[in-house]
Design a protein around this nucleic acid. Sequence first.
DNA 1: CGGCCTGAGTTGAAGAAATAAACTCACCAA
DNA 2: TTGGTGAGTTTATTTCTTCAACTCAGGCCG
Lengths: 163, 163
Amino acid sequence: METRRIDPVNCSVARALSVVGERWSLLIVREALDGARRFGEFHSRLGIARNLLATRLETLVTAGVMRRVPYQEPGDRQRFAYELTEQGRALRPTLVALLEWGDTYLADPQGPSVIVRHRPVDDASSCDEPVKVVLECAAGHSHLAPDDVCRTPGPGARFVESS
Amino acid sequence: METRRIDPVNCSVARALSVVGERWSLLIVREALDGARRFGEFHSRLGIARNLLATRLETLVTAGVMRRVPYQEPGDRQRFAYELTEQGRALRPTLVALLEWGDTYLADPQGPSVIVRHRPVDDASSCDEPVKVVLECAAGHSHLAPDDVCRTPGPGARFVESS
DNA sequence: CGGCCTGAGTTGAAGAAATAAACTCACCAA
DNA sequence: TTGGTGAGTTTATTTCTTCAACTCAGGCCG
């Protein structure tokens, strides 16, 4: 029996992973979300080899996840910093989801080492409560379980035959 | 000025990525969430090399993301299928987050190829509305923006010195 | 029985990517 | 002039991916 299914390669998950799925990429984004900006900061925080860091940053800049901005400290020459674009900051939910998964299934016996809190940049309100990622449908049903959900073809779907 | 910061290596994101951060791993989980169970299904859907698929499946089984279950079709010998454990199904939010990010920033001109819908396994209610991933804090503030959120040390935090 | 087919892997060789360590380059400071 | 620093490059070694060919167990056909 031949059945048509959504082409697994024509899928935003695959495309997303081709940008941020390489080793180190998401960790670089994580550090950037946590305030790292300079080559040396990424290098010393992550322990990544310098050449790899250079090529990863270049890849991320090319992909539009980060931006290379010149800066100059007084009495020093011009250097470059790397900061997230809006596109890069939009990876936050992905990282929170990974963090939660890791906390749940690969936890340190002591408990999580990082807690994500509701604390806006302008600290005014500072709710500070822990943040979780939840699945929510357009009809307002929230906190959906992983199995309450399925994949369906969208407008850009390509199909492949399979047996 | 010396400052203490959360050790970036002692972090659930890094641990999670050490399990599902290798090339193909998340795509294998995605196909499994979409119903793939057999070696040949993963192979033909993803186009991954057979040996790599074998080692990735083994890694995922060892990590507790998948389970190797024997099955036997009538008039055939015993074979093995691979199915997600609860731990594996818990990667759904991560994949939905990646999908959303890819849809937003790397979209096909035609629109998304996949839409995740609220449709439980027992199709009874079948709300069917599209599903999104949202950040929500314990105080009930929902739909937090990426910048409304920050990382703080948890009980298992280790610290490193940095300049 | 013997040959052929299929699904599920293994094995091996060749190419690509990651790592670690040494090297460069521009500038500043003593 | 010598030394130091941040930001990279280069180079050599190891590890990972890929691709193609091979194995292995059983079923099917004549």
